[in-house]
Deep mutational scan, measured.
Amino acid sequence: MSGNGNAAATAEENSPKMRVIRVGTRKSQLARIQTDSVVATLKASYPGLQFEIIAMSTTGDKILDTALSKIGEKSLFTKELEHALEKNEVDLVVHSLKDLPTVLPPGFTIGAICKRENPHDAVVFHPKFVGKTLETLPEKSVVGTSSLRRAAQLQRKFPHLEFRSIRGNLNTRLRKLDEQQEFSAIILATAGLQRMGWHNRVGQILHPEECMYAVGQGALGVEVRAKDQDILDLVGVLHDPETLLRCIAERAFLRHLEGGCSVPVAVHTAMKDGQLYLTGGVWSLDGSDSIQETMQATIHVPAQHEDGPEDDPQLVGITARNIPRGPQLAAQNLGISLANLLLSKGAKNILDVARQLNDAH
C-alpha cells in the first residue's frame, strides 16, 4: 500500500501541473516587456503551470559599433537563445518575429505568432524639431536608422535628408537623439515604442507609400524545439490566425527572394473581405531603383483552434497545428507568387547589386 502511495506522490510531482516552463529572452527592456506579455497570456491559459524567465545577451546586443547589415552573420539576435533551447536550458524563446530568419536551424520551429501590433515605422524627432515631419525637416538634416530597408525607401522619398546608421537598443538610440546634436530624427518601429509606453515620442507614423515595413514587423514569434510536442501544444494558444497568415505570406515572399538583413526588402499586408493583399518591394541601397507589386488571394481566416493538420510540417519556419492547413498554404503560395513576379521584373539584379555594395563598404 505504502509503495503505491509513493508512486502516486511521484506521479503528482512529475505531472504537468508541477512543471516549471523556462522562457528565454534577450536582456533589453523591450525584450523583457514583450516576454512578460507572452508569459502573462500563458499564465492565464495555464494557471497550474509556473513560468521562469531567463534573460541573456546576444551577438546583436554586444556589437554596437557596426551596422547590422555589415556584421555579416545571420541570427544576430537569436543564436545564443537557440543555443540555450538546444541544450534544454529553456523550453521556449520569445523573439520579435522580424529577427527570426525565414529558414531556422534544424530542430527549431516557430510554435506561435502572437497578435500583431502596429507594424509601421515611426519617426521620433529631436526636441528642437518636435512638430515637424520628415518632409518639413531642414535641408541636409541627419536621420538615424539601423535599417537598409528604411534608408533606401526614405532616401527616395525625401532626397533633402541624409540617413546615417544608429545602433543600440531603444533606450540607447533615444538617448543619442536627445543628448547629442548629430541626429534631427530617428526611425523606429511603432510597436516597440508603444510597448515601452513611449507613445508621446511618436512624431509621425510612416504610411506604406512612404515606407513599407519589415517582414514580420510588429509581431512576436515564440520559438521552440520542433519535436517538443508538449510545448508546441502549450504555445499553440498564442497563435493569432490573421497575423499568422499575413506573416506566412510575408516570410514566403522574403524567403523566395532570398532577402535578408543586408538587402532592402519591404512588405505591406492587409486582410479585407476574405482577401489577403500582399505588397512587396525591393530597392537599391540608395533607393534610386525599385520594383513594387501587389497581389491578392482569397483566404478564409479560420477561428482559433479549428482542428489543424496533425502532421505539422513547417511552413517558412512556422508550425501551427491548430490552424487549418489550406489557408496557410494559400498564404505561402501568395508570397511565392509575388516573389516570382518581382524576380521576373529584375528584382534579383537589384538585390545582387545591393548585396555587393553593402559587402564592399
Rank of each mutant, 00 (worst) to 15 (best):
Q217C: 03
L148F: 14
L174P: 00
N200T: 14
I291Q: 13
E52Q: 00
H126L: 08
D228S: 09
T102R: 00
L174G: 05
K62G: 15
D233K: 10
R150C: 06
K98P: 03
S337N: 14
P101I: 11
S146C: 15
M56C: 04
F108H: 00
K62A: 11
F158Y: 14
E162S: 06
H256V: 09
R173A: 02
V124H: 01
D289E: 09
E310W: 04
F163W: 13
H207C: 11
F158L: 11
Q314S: 05
G111C: 03
F163T: 14
T269C: 15
P302W: 13
N171D: 14
G287C: 06
G274S: 03
L351G: 01
L193R: 02
D65M: 04
Q155L: 11
P313C: 06
G144H: 01
V93K: 00
L188A: 11
L285P: 15
D312Y: 12
T136C: 06
R325P: 14
T190K: 10
G168R: 01
L49K: 07
P264V: 00
I54F: 12
E306C: 04
Q155E: 09
H160I: 10
R175F: 03
N340Q: 15
R355T: 05
L148M: 14
L315D: 04
V265T: 05
H83Y: 14
G221E: 00
K43A: 09
T190N: 15
I110Y: 03
G218Q: 01
T243M: 00
P324C: 05
E250D: 05
T41P: 06
H207R: 08
A189G: 09
G236R: 13
L342E: 03
H268M: 15
T294P: 15
C211R: 00
E210G: 04
I71R: 05
V130G: 07
L254V: 10
D91H: 04
W198C: 13
A214T: 08
P327C: 02
R355G: 08
K132L: 10
R156V: 12
S96Q: 00
V202K: 07
P138I: 09
V103P: 10
G308N: 14
F158R: 09
D228P: 15
N340F: 07
V94L: 07
Q292A: 08
P127S: 11
R116K: 03
L193S: 08
K115S: 14
P101K: 00
A112T: 09
I186K: 03
E139M: 08
P119A: 12
I186C: 09
Q275Y: 00
H160L: 10
G274W: 11
L134I: 10
W283Q: 11
T59G: 07
I71Y: 11
P324M: 03
A252D: 02
I186W: 01
T109G: 00
L338S: 11
L357R: 03
A354P: 15
G308D: 13
W283T: 05
F158Q: 10
V142Q: 06
N340W: 15
D178I: 02
L81E: 03
G107W: 15
L49P: 12
L341M: 10
R150Y: 00
L188N: 06
I336G: 03
V39A: 13
A249L: 05
T133K: 09
T78H: 05
G168C: 02
V235A: 05
L220E: 03
V103F: 08
A151Y: 09
M295Y: 15
V224E: 05
M295S: 04
D61A: 00
I291A: 13
G335Y: 00
G72K: 04
E306K: 15
L174R: 07
A152D: 04
Y277T: 06
L68T: 06
N322R: 13
L68W: 07
A189L: 01
Y277Q: 01
E250M: 00
L81Q: 02
G335C: 07
T319V: 01
L245T: 01
L92S: 05
S45E: 10
L285S: 01
Q296G: 12
W283P: 08
E80W: 07
L220S: 06
K140Y: 09
R164F: 09
L343R: 14
K140R: 12
A55T: 08
V123Q: 02
Q204S: 15
V124D: 01
P313A: 14
P324R: 13
L42N: 00
D286T: 08
N340S: 10
L154D: 05
A40N: 07
N171Q: 12
T319D: 07
K74P: 06
S184N: 13
S69D: 09
I299V: 12
H126Y: 06
D311W: 09
K176L: 12
R173K: 04
M196H: 12
T145K: 02
A44Y: 13
V124S: 06
K79D: 11
A320H: 01
D289N: 07
N358K: 15
T319S: 11
Q217E: 03
I231W: 07
L278H: 03
T102K: 02
N118K: 08
P241Q: 15
E209L: 05
L329Y: 06
E52A: 14
L104T: 06
L76E: 05
V94M: 00
N349G: 11
T243K: 05
M56H: 12
I166P: 00
A303K: 14
T59H: 10
V90C: 11
C211T: 06
A189R: 01
I350D: 04
L343P: 04
E89D: 11
G111L: 01
V282K: 04
A270V: 12
I350R: 08
L188G: 09
L357C: 01
Q153E: 04
E82Q: 06
R225E: 08
A67D: 15
F129L: 12
T172C: 08
S290Y: 13
E310G: 13
K70Y: 09
R255A: 05
T136P: 05
L177H: 02
E86T: 10
K132F: 14
R225F: 05
L329M: 15
P324I: 04
G259Q: 01
P47C: 07
K43G: 09
E139P: 01
L342R: 01
T294Q: 00
L206S: 04
K157M: 12
A252F: 01
A354E: 13
L137K: 02
T58F: 03
A320E: 11
L278G: 09
T190D: 09
Q153D: 01
A55Y: 11
S69L: 09
D121Q: 01
V123A: 12
P101N: 08
F77W: 10
D61K: 06
H120F: 15
P138S: 11
D230G: 07
V222R: 01
L238M: 15
L206D: 05
K345C: 05
L254W: 15
S337F: 00
H207V: 11
L170M: 14
P106K: 14
I71S: 08
P324A: 07
H305M: 07
D228H: 02
G280S: 04
K79Y: 12
V103W: 15
N322Y: 08
W198N: 13
T298S: 12
Q204Y: 08
A185T: 14
D99I: 00
S96C: 07
L81I: 11
D99C: 00
L42K: 02
A339I: 02
S75C: 14
K272F: 12
A152S: 04
P105C: 06
L220N: 03
T136A: 08
V94Q: 06
S45P: 08
D228A: 12
E139A: 13
V316Q: 01
G216F: 05
P138V: 08
L220C: 10
R246D: 03
H305Q: 12
N169L: 09
T298E: 11
G60K: 01
I113D: 04
N171P: 06
A55H: 12
G274E: 15
H120R: 13
F158A: 09
G346R: 10
H239V: 03
L174E: 04
M271E: 15
P106F: 13
R255L: 00
P47G: 07
I248M: 04
G236S: 12
Q304S: 14
K87N: 12
Q153Y: 13
R173Q: 01
N322P: 09
K140V: 10
A84V: 09
T145Y: 00
K140I: 07
K62F: 07
K345M: 14
G287A: 04
R173D: 01
E82L: 08
R175V: 13
L42G: 03
Q217P: 08
N118M: 12
L232G: 13
A44T: 12
L254G: 00
I231L: 04
S146I: 06
Q304W: 06
Q180D: 08
I110C: 09
H256A: 15
E89W: 08
A189D: 00
A40E: 09
T269S: 04
D352R: 11
E52R: 12
L315Q: 04
H256G: 15
R173T: 01
S37H: 12
I299E: 11
E162G: 08
A303H: 02
L238R: 02
Q275T: 00
A122T: 10
C211S: 11
V215R: 04
L161N: 04
E306I: 12
